[in-house]
Design a protein around this nucleic acid. Structure first.
Lengths: 278, 278
DNA sequence: GCACGGCGATACCCGGCCGGTATTGATCGG
DNA sequence: CCGATCAATACCGGCCGGGTATCGCCGTGC
Protein backbone atom coordinates (compact mmCIF):
# COMPACT_ATOMS: atom_id res chain seq x y z
CA UNK A 1 0.00 0.00 0.00
CA UNK A 2 1.53 3.28 -1.08
CA UNK A 3 1.21 6.51 0.85
CA UNK A 4 -0.37 8.18 -2.14
CA UNK A 5 -3.11 5.59 -2.26
CA UNK A 6 -3.72 5.92 1.46
CA UNK A 7 -3.83 9.71 1.31
CA UNK A 8 -6.30 9.55 -1.55
CA UNK A 9 -8.47 6.99 0.16
CA UNK A 10 -8.58 8.87 3.45
CA UNK A 11 -9.61 12.05 1.67
CA UNK A 12 -12.38 10.32 -0.26
CA UNK A 13 -13.53 8.49 2.84
CA UNK A 14 -13.75 11.74 4.75
CA UNK A 15 -15.51 13.64 1.98
CA UNK A 16 -17.59 10.74 0.68
CA UNK A 17 -17.48 12.55 -2.67
CA UNK A 18 -14.92 11.87 -5.39
CA UNK A 19 -15.19 15.30 -7.00
CA UNK A 20 -14.61 17.29 -3.83
CA UNK A 21 -11.89 14.91 -2.68
CA UNK A 22 -10.06 15.31 -5.99
CA UNK A 23 -10.30 19.06 -5.67
CA UNK A 24 -8.88 18.93 -2.13
CA UNK A 25 -6.05 16.74 -3.38
CA UNK A 26 -5.35 19.03 -6.29
CA UNK A 27 -5.92 16.41 -8.97
CA UNK A 28 -8.73 15.60 -11.39
CA UNK A 29 -11.49 13.17 -10.50
CA UNK A 30 -10.75 10.33 -12.94
CA UNK A 31 -7.23 9.50 -11.67
CA UNK A 32 -8.64 9.54 -8.17
CA UNK A 33 -11.38 7.04 -9.06
CA UNK A 34 -8.79 4.90 -10.76
CA UNK A 35 -6.39 4.96 -7.81
CA UNK A 36 -9.12 3.96 -5.35
CA UNK A 37 -10.22 1.15 -7.67
CA UNK A 38 -6.63 -0.03 -7.92
CA UNK A 39 -6.24 0.06 -4.14
CA UNK A 40 -9.39 -2.02 -3.77
CA UNK A 41 -8.17 -4.47 -6.37
CA UNK A 42 -4.80 -4.84 -4.66
CA UNK A 43 -6.37 -5.35 -1.24
CA UNK A 44 -9.02 -7.59 -2.72
CA UNK A 45 -11.59 -5.65 -0.73
CA UNK A 46 -14.39 -3.20 -1.50
CA UNK A 47 -13.76 -0.05 0.54
CA UNK A 48 -16.55 2.19 -0.73
CA UNK A 49 -20.04 1.45 -1.95
CA UNK A 50 -20.80 3.96 -4.65
CA UNK A 51 -23.90 4.64 -6.59
CA UNK A 52 -23.77 7.56 -8.94
CA UNK A 53 -25.56 9.55 -6.24
CA UNK A 54 -23.97 8.54 -2.98
CA UNK A 55 -20.71 7.16 -1.63
CA UNK A 56 -20.66 5.22 1.63
CA UNK A 57 -17.96 3.41 3.57
CA UNK A 58 -18.04 -0.35 3.84
CA UNK A 59 -17.05 -2.09 7.05
CA UNK A 60 -13.55 -2.59 5.69
CA UNK A 61 -13.41 1.01 4.57
CA UNK A 62 -14.21 2.19 8.07
CA UNK A 63 -11.33 0.16 9.42
CA UNK A 64 -8.90 1.45 6.82
CA UNK A 65 -9.99 5.03 7.40
CA UNK A 66 -9.16 4.83 11.09
CA UNK A 67 -5.86 3.05 10.52
CA UNK A 68 -4.97 5.25 7.60
CA UNK A 69 -5.48 8.47 9.52
CA UNK A 70 -3.15 7.21 12.21
CA UNK A 71 -0.55 6.12 9.67
CA UNK A 72 -0.59 9.42 7.81
CA UNK A 73 -0.19 11.20 11.13
CA UNK A 74 2.70 8.95 12.01
CA UNK A 75 4.32 9.67 8.67
CA UNK A 76 4.07 13.41 9.19
CA UNK A 77 5.46 12.96 12.68
CA UNK A 78 8.35 10.85 11.40
CA UNK A 79 9.30 13.50 8.85
CA UNK A 80 9.17 16.26 11.40
CA UNK A 81 11.21 14.36 13.96
CA UNK A 82 13.76 13.29 11.40
CA UNK A 83 14.25 16.82 10.24
CA UNK A 84 14.54 18.24 13.72
CA UNK A 85 17.00 15.51 14.68
CA UNK A 86 19.25 16.68 11.86
CA UNK A 87 19.02 20.43 11.97
CA UNK A 88 18.54 21.98 15.37
CA UNK A 89 20.62 21.43 18.42
CA UNK A 90 18.64 19.06 20.59
CA UNK A 91 15.66 20.58 22.32
CA UNK A 92 12.35 19.36 23.68
CA UNK A 93 8.85 20.51 22.91
CA UNK A 94 6.34 19.96 25.69
CA UNK A 95 2.66 20.22 24.91
CA UNK A 96 0.07 21.03 27.56
CA UNK A 97 -3.33 22.54 28.04
CA UNK A 98 -3.25 26.27 28.68
CA UNK A 99 -4.34 26.96 32.22
CA UNK A 100 -4.06 23.39 33.43
CA UNK A 101 -1.43 21.82 35.66
CA UNK A 102 0.18 25.21 36.14
CA UNK A 103 2.07 24.46 39.28
CA UNK A 104 3.13 20.99 38.24
CA UNK A 105 4.37 22.34 34.94
CA UNK A 106 6.45 25.01 36.66
CA UNK A 107 7.97 22.48 39.05
CA UNK A 108 8.74 20.12 36.19
CA UNK A 109 10.45 22.77 34.09
CA UNK A 110 12.48 24.00 37.06
CA UNK A 111 13.54 20.52 38.10
CA UNK A 112 14.47 19.54 34.57
CA UNK A 113 16.42 22.74 33.96
CA UNK A 114 18.55 21.85 36.97
CA UNK A 115 19.60 18.57 35.33
CA UNK A 116 23.23 18.40 34.21
CA UNK A 117 22.44 17.63 30.54
CA UNK A 118 19.24 19.65 30.26
CA UNK A 119 18.33 20.97 26.82
CA UNK A 120 16.03 23.94 26.14
CA UNK A 121 12.35 23.12 26.55
CA UNK A 122 9.77 24.84 24.38
CA UNK A 123 6.16 24.96 25.49
CA UNK A 124 3.22 24.41 23.21
CA UNK A 125 -0.02 25.42 24.90
CA UNK A 126 -3.34 24.29 23.45
CA UNK A 127 -6.94 25.03 24.28
CA UNK A 128 -7.59 21.33 24.03
CA UNK A 129 -6.30 18.10 22.56
CA UNK A 130 -2.63 18.58 23.39
CA UNK A 131 -2.02 14.93 22.44
CA UNK A 132 -2.61 15.83 18.81
CA UNK A 133 0.72 17.61 18.85
CA UNK A 134 2.34 14.32 19.76
CA UNK A 135 0.59 12.39 17.03
CA UNK A 136 1.79 14.68 14.28
CA UNK A 137 5.27 15.16 15.64
CA UNK A 138 5.04 18.76 16.75
CA UNK A 139 5.83 17.88 20.33
CA UNK A 140 8.10 15.41 22.10
CA UNK A 141 6.03 15.05 25.24
CA UNK A 142 2.69 16.18 26.59
CA UNK A 143 0.97 16.67 29.92
CA UNK A 144 -2.42 14.99 29.71
CA UNK A 145 -5.35 14.49 32.01
CA UNK A 146 -6.78 11.04 32.24
CA UNK A 147 -9.51 10.10 31.63
CA UNK A 148 -10.25 13.25 29.59
CA UNK A 149 -7.46 13.04 27.04
CA UNK A 150 -6.87 10.02 24.92
CA UNK A 151 -3.56 8.31 25.54
CA UNK A 152 -4.09 5.77 22.79
CA UNK A 153 -0.81 4.77 21.27
CA UNK A 154 1.29 6.67 23.75
CA UNK A 155 3.53 5.72 26.60
CA UNK A 156 2.59 7.39 29.86
CA UNK A 157 3.67 7.83 33.45
CA UNK A 158 1.30 9.12 36.09
CA UNK A 159 2.61 12.25 37.79
CA UNK A 160 -0.24 13.24 40.09
CA UNK A 161 -3.78 12.32 41.03
CA UNK A 162 -6.38 14.75 42.22
CA UNK A 163 -10.07 15.01 42.88
CA UNK A 164 -12.50 17.16 41.01
CA UNK A 165 -14.42 20.21 42.13
CA UNK A 166 -17.56 21.88 40.88
CA UNK A 167 -17.25 25.57 40.08
CA UNK A 168 -20.39 27.44 41.07
CA UNK A 169 -21.47 31.06 41.32
CA UNK A 170 -21.05 32.15 44.96
CA UNK A 171 -24.71 33.05 45.10
CA UNK A 172 -25.94 29.60 44.17
CA UNK A 173 -27.52 27.53 46.95
CA UNK A 174 -25.15 24.60 46.40
CA UNK A 175 -22.14 26.89 46.76
CA UNK A 176 -22.43 26.78 50.55
CA UNK A 177 -22.14 23.01 50.68
CA UNK A 178 -18.81 21.55 51.76
CA UNK A 179 -19.04 18.70 49.29
CA UNK A 180 -21.28 17.52 46.50
CA UNK A 181 -22.13 14.40 44.58
CA UNK A 182 -21.90 14.15 40.83
CA UNK A 183 -25.62 13.56 40.44
CA UNK A 184 -26.36 16.81 42.24
CA UNK A 185 -24.38 19.04 39.91
CA UNK A 186 -25.07 17.22 36.68
CA UNK A 187 -28.81 17.63 36.87
CA UNK A 188 -29.32 21.26 37.80
CA UNK A 189 -32.02 22.65 35.54
CA UNK A 190 -30.90 26.23 36.17
CA UNK A 191 -27.19 25.46 35.70
CA UNK A 192 -26.59 22.91 32.96
CA UNK A 193 -23.03 21.59 32.61
CA UNK A 194 -20.94 23.37 30.03
CA UNK A 195 -20.13 21.55 26.80
CA UNK A 196 -16.53 21.49 25.62
CA UNK A 197 -15.50 21.18 22.07
CA UNK A 198 -14.85 17.55 21.19
CA UNK A 199 -11.98 16.07 19.15
CA UNK A 200 -13.53 16.96 15.80
CA UNK A 201 -14.06 20.59 16.76
CA UNK A 202 -17.76 19.96 17.26
CA UNK A 203 -19.78 20.03 20.44
CA UNK A 204 -21.64 17.13 22.04
CA UNK A 205 -25.41 17.33 21.94
CA UNK A 206 -27.32 18.56 24.93
CA UNK A 207 -28.22 21.64 26.94
CA UNK A 208 -25.65 24.01 28.37
CA UNK A 209 -23.54 26.67 26.73
CA UNK A 210 -20.74 25.84 24.32
CA UNK A 211 -17.39 26.70 25.77
CA UNK A 212 -14.01 27.22 24.15
CA UNK A 213 -11.65 28.21 26.92
CA UNK A 214 -11.36 28.63 30.61
CA UNK A 215 -11.59 32.43 30.77
CA UNK A 216 -14.83 32.36 28.86
CA UNK A 217 -16.07 29.50 31.01
CA UNK A 218 -15.40 31.21 34.34
CA UNK A 219 -17.08 34.35 33.16
CA UNK A 220 -20.18 32.39 32.13
CA UNK A 221 -20.26 30.67 35.50
CA UNK A 222 -19.97 34.00 37.31
CA UNK A 223 -22.93 35.16 35.25
CA UNK A 224 -24.92 32.16 36.49
CA UNK A 225 -25.29 30.64 33.05
CA UNK A 226 -23.49 27.34 33.50
CA UNK A 227 -21.34 25.25 35.78
CA UNK A 228 -18.54 22.77 35.36
CA UNK A 229 -16.66 19.99 37.11
CA UNK A 230 -12.88 20.35 36.89
CA UNK A 231 -9.73 18.96 38.47
CA UNK A 232 -8.81 20.88 41.63
CA UNK A 233 -5.61 22.28 40.21
CA UNK A 234 -7.36 23.95 37.31
CA UNK A 235 -8.73 26.67 39.58
CA UNK A 236 -5.96 27.89 41.83
CA UNK A 237 -6.76 31.52 41.17
CA UNK A 238 -10.50 31.63 41.22
CA UNK A 239 -12.35 34.76 40.14
CA UNK A 240 -14.23 36.63 42.78
CA UNK A 241 -17.80 35.44 42.88
CA UNK A 242 -16.91 31.83 42.11
CA UNK A 243 -16.75 28.96 44.56
CA UNK A 244 -15.16 25.54 44.18
CA UNK A 245 -16.86 22.63 45.96
CA UNK A 246 -15.31 19.15 45.96
CA UNK A 247 -17.31 16.52 44.12
CA UNK A 248 -16.69 13.40 46.10
CA UNK A 249 -17.79 10.75 43.63
CA UNK A 250 -16.31 12.27 40.48
CA UNK A 251 -13.58 10.05 39.01
CA UNK A 252 -10.06 10.96 40.08
CA UNK A 253 -8.05 12.77 37.46
CA UNK A 254 -4.53 11.60 36.73
CA UNK A 255 -2.05 14.07 35.34
CA UNK A 256 0.28 12.02 33.17
CA UNK A 257 3.29 12.78 31.08
CA UNK A 258 2.94 11.09 27.70
CA UNK A 259 5.36 10.55 24.86
CA UNK A 260 5.33 8.64 21.61
CA UNK A 261 6.66 5.11 21.61
CA UNK A 262 9.96 4.47 19.80
CA UNK A 263 11.05 7.93 20.85
CA UNK A 264 13.89 7.45 23.25
CA UNK A 265 16.18 10.42 23.11
CA UNK A 266 18.41 11.06 26.06
CA UNK A 267 16.73 14.38 26.72
CA UNK A 268 13.23 12.90 26.71
CA UNK A 269 14.28 10.08 29.01
CA UNK A 270 15.70 12.66 31.43
CA UNK A 271 12.52 14.70 31.33
CA UNK A 272 10.37 11.66 32.06
CA UNK A 273 12.66 10.58 34.86
CA UNK A 274 12.59 14.02 36.45
CA UNK A 275 8.81 14.19 36.05
CA UNK A 276 8.16 10.89 37.77
CA UNK A 277 10.51 11.84 40.57
CA UNK A 278 8.67 15.06 41.43
CA UNK B 1 7.29 10.44 2.00
CA UNK B 2 6.22 7.39 0.01
CA UNK B 3 6.10 3.91 1.49
CA UNK B 4 8.46 2.67 -1.18
CA UNK B 5 11.06 5.18 -0.08
CA UNK B 6 10.55 4.25 3.55
CA UNK B 7 10.77 0.53 2.84
CA UNK B 8 14.00 1.06 0.90
CA UNK B 9 15.49 3.25 3.58
CA UNK B 10 14.64 0.87 6.41
CA UNK B 11 16.22 -2.01 4.54
CA UNK B 12 19.41 -0.09 3.83
CA UNK B 13 19.54 1.20 7.38
CA UNK B 14 19.23 -2.32 8.73
CA UNK B 15 21.77 -3.82 6.35
CA UNK B 16 24.11 -0.83 6.20
CA UNK B 17 25.02 -2.10 2.74
CA UNK B 18 23.39 -0.91 -0.48
CA UNK B 19 24.17 -4.03 -2.45
CA UNK B 20 22.70 -6.49 0.04
CA UNK B 21 19.72 -4.23 0.67
CA UNK B 22 18.99 -4.05 -3.04
CA UNK B 23 19.18 -7.81 -3.28
CA UNK B 24 16.76 -8.18 -0.35
CA UNK B 25 14.41 -5.73 -2.02
CA UNK B 26 14.64 -7.53 -5.32
CA UNK B 27 15.93 -4.53 -7.28
CA UNK B 28 19.30 -3.45 -8.59
CA UNK B 29 21.63 -1.29 -6.55
CA UNK B 30 21.62 1.93 -8.61
CA UNK B 31 17.87 2.67 -8.32
CA UNK B 32 18.20 2.05 -4.60
CA UNK B 33 21.03 4.56 -4.25
CA UNK B 34 19.04 7.01 -6.27
CA UNK B 35 15.88 6.58 -4.21
CA UNK B 36 17.74 7.09 -0.93
CA UNK B 37 19.41 10.19 -2.33
CA UNK B 38 16.05 11.48 -3.46
CA UNK B 39 14.55 10.85 -0.02
CA UNK B 40 17.40 12.73 1.60
CA UNK B 41 16.98 15.59 -0.83
CA UNK B 42 13.25 15.80 -0.18
CA UNK B 43 13.69 15.72 3.59
CA UNK B 44 16.61 18.09 3.36
CA UNK B 45 18.50 15.77 5.69
CA UNK B 46 21.45 13.39 5.42
CA UNK B 47 20.31 9.98 6.65
CA UNK B 48 23.39 7.89 5.91
CA UNK B 49 27.10 8.67 5.93
CA UNK B 50 28.66 6.59 3.23
CA UNK B 51 32.20 6.07 2.20
CA UNK B 52 32.83 3.51 -0.49
CA UNK B 53 33.73 1.06 2.28
CA UNK B 54 31.24 1.68 5.05
CA UNK B 55 27.71 2.96 5.54
CA UNK B 56 26.65 4.39 8.90
CA UNK B 57 23.46 5.96 10.19
CA UNK B 58 23.38 9.63 11.08
CA UNK B 59 21.43 10.88 14.08
CA UNK B 60 18.49 11.69 11.82
CA UNK B 61 18.77 8.31 10.15
CA UNK B 62 18.50 6.58 13.50
CA UNK B 63 15.30 8.46 14.22
CA UNK B 64 13.80 7.67 10.85
CA UNK B 65 14.74 4.01 11.15
CA UNK B 66 12.81 3.66 14.41
CA UNK B 67 9.81 5.60 13.17
CA UNK B 68 9.88 3.90 9.80
CA UNK B 69 9.86 0.41 11.25
CA UNK B 70 6.80 1.29 13.29
CA UNK B 71 5.06 2.83 10.29
CA UNK B 72 5.74 -0.12 8.02
CA UNK B 73 4.41 -2.39 10.74
CA UNK B 74 1.32 -0.24 11.06
CA UNK B 75 0.81 -0.39 7.30
CA UNK B 76 1.00 -4.16 7.28
CA UNK B 77 -1.39 -4.25 10.21
CA UNK B 78 -3.82 -1.91 8.47
CA UNK B 79 -3.88 -4.09 5.37
CA UNK B 80 -4.44 -7.22 7.36
CA UNK B 81 -7.21 -5.71 9.47
CA UNK B 82 -8.90 -4.19 6.46
CA UNK B 83 -8.92 -7.50 4.67
CA UNK B 84 -10.20 -9.43 7.63
CA UNK B 85 -12.90 -6.84 8.23
CA UNK B 86 -14.16 -7.49 4.72
CA UNK B 87 -13.90 -11.22 4.33
CA UNK B 88 -14.41 -13.28 7.44
CA UNK B 89 -17.32 -13.17 9.81
CA UNK B 90 -16.10 -11.22 12.82
CA UNK B 91 -13.70 -13.08 15.07
CA UNK B 92 -10.96 -12.19 17.49
CA UNK B 93 -7.35 -13.28 17.56
CA UNK B 94 -5.74 -13.26 20.99
CA UNK B 95 -1.99 -13.49 21.25
CA UNK B 96 -0.23 -14.80 24.35
CA UNK B 97 2.95 -16.45 25.49
CA UNK B 98 2.78 -20.21 25.43
CA UNK B 99 2.82 -21.54 28.96
CA UNK B 100 2.12 -18.24 30.64
CA UNK B 101 -1.07 -16.99 32.29
CA UNK B 102 -2.67 -20.37 31.70
CA UNK B 103 -5.39 -20.12 34.28
CA UNK B 104 -6.19 -16.50 33.58
CA UNK B 105 -6.42 -17.25 29.88
CA UNK B 106 -8.84 -20.10 30.45
CA UNK B 107 -11.01 -17.99 32.71
CA UNK B 108 -11.02 -15.16 30.21
CA UNK B 109 -12.00 -17.36 27.29
CA UNK B 110 -14.77 -19.02 29.30
CA UNK B 111 -16.13 -15.74 30.57
CA UNK B 112 -16.08 -14.15 27.14
CA UNK B 113 -17.69 -17.14 25.47
CA UNK B 114 -20.61 -16.72 27.86
CA UNK B 115 -21.23 -13.19 26.57
CA UNK B 116 -24.38 -12.73 24.50
CA UNK B 117 -22.60 -11.38 21.40
CA UNK B 118 -19.42 -13.41 21.70
CA UNK B 119 -17.53 -14.15 18.49
CA UNK B 120 -15.08 -17.01 17.99
CA UNK B 121 -11.67 -16.37 19.56
CA UNK B 122 -8.54 -17.77 17.95
CA UNK B 123 -5.40 -18.16 20.01
CA UNK B 124 -1.94 -17.31 18.77
CA UNK B 125 0.72 -18.66 21.11
CA UNK B 126 4.27 -17.40 20.87
CA UNK B 127 7.51 -18.36 22.52
CA UNK B 128 8.12 -14.69 23.12
CA UNK B 129 7.23 -11.22 21.90
CA UNK B 130 3.48 -11.74 21.59
CA UNK B 131 3.07 -7.99 21.15
CA UNK B 132 4.69 -8.27 17.74
CA UNK B 133 1.52 -9.94 16.53
CA UNK B 134 -0.37 -6.81 17.50
CA UNK B 135 2.04 -4.49 15.75
CA UNK B 136 1.73 -6.25 12.43
CA UNK B 137 -1.98 -6.88 12.65
CA UNK B 138 -2.00 -10.62 13.13
CA UNK B 139 -3.80 -10.34 16.45
CA UNK B 140 -6.53 -8.12 17.88
CA UNK B 141 -5.44 -8.36 21.50
CA UNK B 142 -2.58 -9.79 23.52
CA UNK B 143 -1.87 -10.88 27.06
CA UNK B 144 1.41 -9.28 28.09
CA UNK B 145 3.57 -9.26 31.17
CA UNK B 146 4.80 -5.94 32.39
CA UNK B 147 7.58 -4.98 32.73
CA UNK B 148 8.91 -7.76 30.46
CA UNK B 149 6.94 -7.04 27.33
CA UNK B 150 6.91 -3.68 25.69
CA UNK B 151 3.51 -2.02 25.65
CA UNK B 152 4.74 0.95 23.66
CA UNK B 153 1.99 2.27 21.46
CA UNK B 154 -0.68 0.01 22.88
CA UNK B 155 -3.66 0.52 25.10
CA UNK B 156 -3.63 -1.68 28.15
CA UNK B 157 -5.66 -2.72 31.16
CA UNK B 158 -4.08 -4.49 34.10
CA UNK B 159 -5.73 -7.84 34.80
CA UNK B 160 -3.62 -9.28 37.59
CA UNK B 161 -0.49 -8.65 39.62
CA UNK B 162 1.74 -11.32 41.00
CA UNK B 163 5.12 -11.79 42.61
CA UNK B 164 8.05 -13.65 41.12
CA UNK B 165 9.66 -16.90 42.14
CA UNK B 166 13.07 -18.38 41.50
CA UNK B 167 13.07 -21.86 39.98
CA UNK B 168 15.86 -23.96 41.42
CA UNK B 169 16.92 -27.59 41.30
CA UNK B 170 15.56 -29.31 44.41
CA UNK B 171 19.06 -30.32 45.37
CA UNK B 172 20.42 -26.78 45.46
CA UNK B 173 21.12 -25.29 48.90
CA UNK B 174 18.94 -22.25 48.26
CA UNK B 175 15.98 -24.48 47.34
CA UNK B 176 15.22 -25.06 51.04
CA UNK B 177 14.82 -21.38 51.77
CA UNK B 178 11.29 -20.06 52.16
CA UNK B 179 12.11 -16.81 50.40
CA UNK B 180 15.01 -15.21 48.60
CA UNK B 181 16.27 -11.82 47.58
CA UNK B 182 17.06 -10.90 44.02
CA UNK B 183 20.71 -10.35 44.75
CA UNK B 184 21.04 -13.88 46.08
CA UNK B 185 19.83 -15.61 42.94
CA UNK B 186 21.31 -13.26 40.39
CA UNK B 187 24.88 -13.79 41.51
CA UNK B 188 25.21 -17.55 41.88
CA UNK B 189 28.47 -18.55 40.24
CA UNK B 190 27.30 -22.15 39.88
CA UNK B 191 23.84 -21.21 38.57
CA UNK B 192 23.94 -18.20 36.28
CA UNK B 193 20.58 -16.78 35.24
CA UNK B 194 19.32 -18.00 31.90
CA UNK B 195 19.40 -15.62 28.97
CA UNK B 196 16.26 -15.26 26.89
CA UNK B 197 16.24 -14.28 23.32
CA UNK B 198 15.78 -10.54 22.97
CA UNK B 199 13.53 -8.65 20.53
CA UNK B 200 15.95 -8.95 17.63
CA UNK B 201 16.27 -12.71 18.03
CA UNK B 202 19.69 -12.29 19.61
CA UNK B 203 20.76 -12.98 23.16
CA UNK B 204 22.04 -10.46 25.71
CA UNK B 205 25.69 -10.73 26.61
CA UNK B 206 26.75 -12.54 29.73
CA UNK B 207 27.13 -15.94 31.30
CA UNK B 208 24.31 -18.47 31.52
CA UNK B 209 22.80 -20.73 28.90
CA UNK B 210 20.77 -19.40 26.00
CA UNK B 211 17.16 -20.43 26.32
CA UNK B 212 14.39 -20.54 23.76
CA UNK B 213 11.38 -21.94 25.56
CA UNK B 214 10.10 -23.01 28.90
CA UNK B 215 10.36 -26.78 28.39
CA UNK B 216 14.00 -26.45 27.50
CA UNK B 217 14.52 -24.07 30.39
CA UNK B 218 13.00 -26.33 33.03
CA UNK B 219 15.03 -29.24 31.81
CA UNK B 220 18.22 -27.22 32.03
CA UNK B 221 17.34 -26.15 35.55
CA UNK B 222 16.64 -29.72 36.57
CA UNK B 223 20.09 -30.57 35.23
CA UNK B 224 21.57 -27.90 37.47
CA UNK B 225 22.85 -25.80 34.62
CA UNK B 226 20.92 -22.59 35.15
CA UNK B 227 18.18 -20.90 37.10
CA UNK B 228 15.54 -18.31 36.40
CA UNK B 229 13.19 -15.84 38.04
CA UNK B 230 9.62 -16.06 36.75
CA UNK B 231 6.12 -14.89 37.64
CA UNK B 232 4.41 -17.31 40.02
CA UNK B 233 1.76 -18.36 37.57
CA UNK B 234 4.27 -19.52 34.99
CA UNK B 235 5.03 -22.65 37.00
CA UNK B 236 1.79 -24.18 38.18
CA UNK B 237 2.82 -27.64 37.09
CA UNK B 238 6.41 -27.85 38.12
CA UNK B 239 8.55 -30.76 37.04
CA UNK B 240 9.68 -33.12 39.72
CA UNK B 241 13.06 -32.07 40.98
CA UNK B 242 12.33 -28.38 40.66
CA UNK B 243 11.45 -25.99 43.45
CA UNK B 244 9.95 -22.52 43.29
CA UNK B 245 11.03 -20.02 45.95
CA UNK B 246 9.46 -16.55 46.17
CA UNK B 247 11.82 -13.69 45.45
CA UNK B 248 10.60 -10.96 47.72
CA UNK B 249 12.25 -7.95 46.17
CA UNK B 250 11.73 -8.84 42.52
CA UNK B 251 9.46 -6.33 40.80
CA UNK B 252 5.79 -7.33 40.70
CA UNK B 253 4.62 -8.58 37.33
CA UNK B 254 1.40 -7.20 35.89
CA UNK B 255 -0.53 -9.34 33.46
CA UNK B 256 -2.22 -6.88 31.12
CA UNK B 257 -4.51 -7.19 28.18
CA UNK B 258 -3.27 -4.95 25.37
CA UNK B 259 -4.80 -3.88 22.10
CA UNK B 260 -3.90 -1.45 19.37
CA UNK B 261 -5.27 2.06 19.57
CA UNK B 262 -7.91 3.06 16.99
CA UNK B 263 -9.17 -0.49 17.13
CA UNK B 264 -12.57 -0.35 18.69
CA UNK B 265 -14.67 -3.18 17.39
CA UNK B 266 -17.63 -4.24 19.43
CA UNK B 267 -16.13 -7.68 19.97
CA UNK B 268 -12.81 -6.32 21.22
CA UNK B 269 -14.53 -3.90 23.57
CA UNK B 270 -16.51 -6.81 25.00
CA UNK B 271 -13.39 -8.89 25.46
CA UNK B 272 -11.60 -6.08 27.29
CA UNK B 273 -14.61 -5.41 29.46
CA UNK B 274 -14.91 -9.08 30.40
CA UNK B 275 -11.18 -9.29 31.06
CA UNK B 276 -11.11 -6.34 33.44
CA UNK B 277 -14.14 -7.71 35.26
CA UNK B 278 -12.52 -11.05 36.05
C1' DG C 1 53.74 0.84 -3.96
C1' DC C 2 50.82 -0.85 -7.15
C1' DA C 3 47.21 -3.67 -8.78
C1' DC C 4 43.00 -5.67 -7.75
C1' DG C 5 38.51 -5.96 -5.81
C1' DG C 6 34.53 -4.24 -3.51
C1' DC C 7 31.10 -0.77 -3.26
C1' DG C 8 28.44 3.32 -3.93
C1' DA C 9 27.55 7.03 -7.43
C1' DT C 10 26.59 8.44 -12.10
C1' DA C 11 24.93 8.11 -16.93
C1' DC C 12 21.66 6.65 -19.93
C1' DC C 13 17.70 4.11 -21.80
C1' DC C 14 13.12 1.96 -21.65
C1' DG C 15 8.47 0.90 -20.11
C1' DG C 16 4.74 1.55 -17.04
C1' DC C 17 2.09 4.36 -14.20
C1' DC C 18 0.19 8.80 -12.89
C1' DG C 19 -2.31 12.61 -14.28
C1' DG C 20 -4.99 15.21 -17.70
C1' DT C 21 -9.20 15.88 -21.05
C1' DA C 22 -13.33 14.08 -23.19
C1' DT C 23 -17.08 11.18 -22.82
C1' DT C 24 -20.29 7.70 -21.18
C1' DG C 25 -23.63 5.81 -18.16
C1' DA C 26 -26.44 5.54 -14.13
C1' DT C 27 -29.56 7.58 -10.85
C1' DC C 28 -32.39 10.89 -8.60
C1' DG C 29 -35.43 15.05 -8.65
C1' DG C 30 -38.89 17.73 -10.71
C1' DC D 1 -39.54 11.99 -19.11
C1' DC D 2 -35.86 15.24 -19.09
C1' DG D 3 -31.98 17.26 -17.06
C1' DA D 4 -28.52 17.62 -13.58
C1' DT D 5 -25.11 15.32 -10.98
C1' DC D 6 -21.46 12.31 -10.30
C1' DA D 7 -18.62 8.21 -10.79
C1' DA D 8 -16.60 5.22 -14.42
C1' DT D 9 -14.29 4.54 -18.84
C1' DA D 10 -11.31 5.68 -22.83
C1' DC D 11 -7.34 7.50 -24.41
C1' DC D 12 -3.10 10.21 -24.54
C1' DG D 13 1.38 12.33 -22.94
C1' DG D 14 5.13 13.03 -19.69
C1' DC D 15 7.56 11.62 -15.68
C1' DC D 16 9.57 8.48 -12.83
C1' DG D 17 11.12 4.05 -11.33
C1' DG D 18 13.90 0.23 -12.75
C1' DG D 19 17.50 -1.91 -15.66
C1' DT D 20 22.57 -2.16 -17.62
C1' DA D 21 27.06 -0.20 -18.13
C1' DT D 22 30.56 2.36 -16.13
C1' DC D 23 33.15 5.37 -13.09
C1' DG D 24 35.59 6.73 -8.91
C1' DC D 25 37.06 5.93 -4.40
C1' DC D 26 39.31 3.35 -0.96
C1' DG D 27 41.11 -0.55 1.53
C1' DT D 28 43.81 -4.79 1.02
C1' DG D 29 47.40 -7.93 -0.24
C1' DC D 30 51.37 -9.42 -2.84
Amino acid sequence: METRELRYFVTVAEELHFGRAAQLLGIAQPPLSRTIAQLERRLGVVLLDRTSRKVTLTEAGTVLLAEGRAILGALAAAERRTRSAATSPPSLVLSAKAGASGELLAKLLDAYAAEPDAVPVDLLLFESQPQQALADGQADAALLHQPFDSTAGLETEVLATEGQVAILPAAHPLARRSRLRLAEVSSLPDLPLARWRGPGGDYPEGPGVEVRNQTQLFQLIALGRTTVVLPESSCVNLLEGLVAVPVTDAPAVDTVIAWPPHSRSRALADLVRVATGL
